[in-house]
């Protein structure tokens, strides 16, 4: 398993007294695309946030390994510099912080941690402009404050712009598809596909199978009530599209009852 990138082992996570993840395990190899699907409140976003290191969650048991090392005690910025990227479900507005300056500082932080020189202003502008164009973003948006006054679709595209410019190893996409119209969805999916490759891995958290028409997953996992209740291939997503989540919920409850 030389290509194992992310390993989640029997992870239990609580917010306050409320247990959200109840023993979740997942292995992601380089070159793979995993889709995590499930109804609202099943713990999908919690999984993405805990891997990225967002504060506010308590890991009560289990572990998260990245490139073979536990990362639970690492700060979010340390994880980012190690190659983990989270596209947020609700990108945050940063008043007074220009999009361009933010992205450049992030790129420099990553480059410095790899022992590289800071990016030159001209190289950065070129890179940024090319990538923004690919994603159909107005050049003007780079001068505006981060996410301030952006439409829902612009915010999501801006996340993908950060993804393609920062070029991490593991991309966690938390409901990047929600709120996008079909054209925007295609643009975002193209961006994600260009990012993907044999040295990368993508974990796509989504409520809908729609985006999977454009980003083909190698694995689909269904998360219900804090556990993965079923894993399969692309066809599982299509089945969910037809049948919804209730049948899996019932199966899970039936299965869980005897062992409880």
């Amino acid at each position: 398993m030389a290509d194992l990138l992310l390993e989640v082992r029997d992870l239990h996570v609580a917010v306050g007294d409320n247990e959200i993840l109840k023993g979740l395990s997942l292995a992601v190899n380089k070159g793979e695309v995993h889709a995590i699907m499930g109804p609202n409140g099943s713990g999908k976003s919690t999984l993405a946030n805990v891997v990225a290191g967002k504060p506010g969650y308590t890991v009560t048991a289990g572990d998260v390994l990245y490139e073979g090392e536990s990362i639970l005690t690492k700060l979010p910025d340390e994880r980012a510099r190690a190659g983990i990227f989270l596209a947020l479900q609700y990108p945050v507005e940063l008043p007074g912080v220009r999009n361009r300056d933010f992205l450049r500082a992030a790129l420099d932080a990553l480059r410095e941690s790899r022992g590289e020189d800071k990016v030159g202003i001209r190289d950065f502008n070129k890179l940024m402009q090319a990538k923004a164009e690919e994603l159909g973003l107005e050049p003007d948006m780079m001068k505006r404050n981060v996410n301030e006054g952006f439409s829902g679709g612009e915010k999501k595209r801006n996340e993908i712009l950060q993804l393609v410019v920062l070029d991490p190893t593991l991309a966690l996409l938390d409901e990047t598809d929600s709120g996008l119209d079909i054209d925007a969805l295609k643009v975002v999916a193209e961006g994600v596909n260009r990012f993907g490759g044999p040295e990368k891995a993508i974990v796509l958290v989504t409520h809908y199978q729609r985006i999977l028409d454009y980003i083909t997953p190698d694995f689909v996992h269904v998360l219900i009530d804090g556990r993965i209740v079923r894993s399969g291939g692309r066809e599982l997503a299509l089945e969910l599209e037809k049948r919804g989540y209730d049948w899996l919920r019932e199966e899970a409850q039936a299965g869980a009852a005897p062992s409880a």
Binding site: P76, A80, F102, A106, A109
Partner: peptide, 19 residues
């Protein structure tokens, strides 16, 4: 906001300075 910046690799001190 702090987490957002950190999740892009920016350390907390620099993130704070930015904000």
């Amino acid at each position: 906001a702090l987490f957002y910046m950190q999740s892009r690799g920016i350390d907390p001190e620099q993130a704070m300075l930015f904000l």
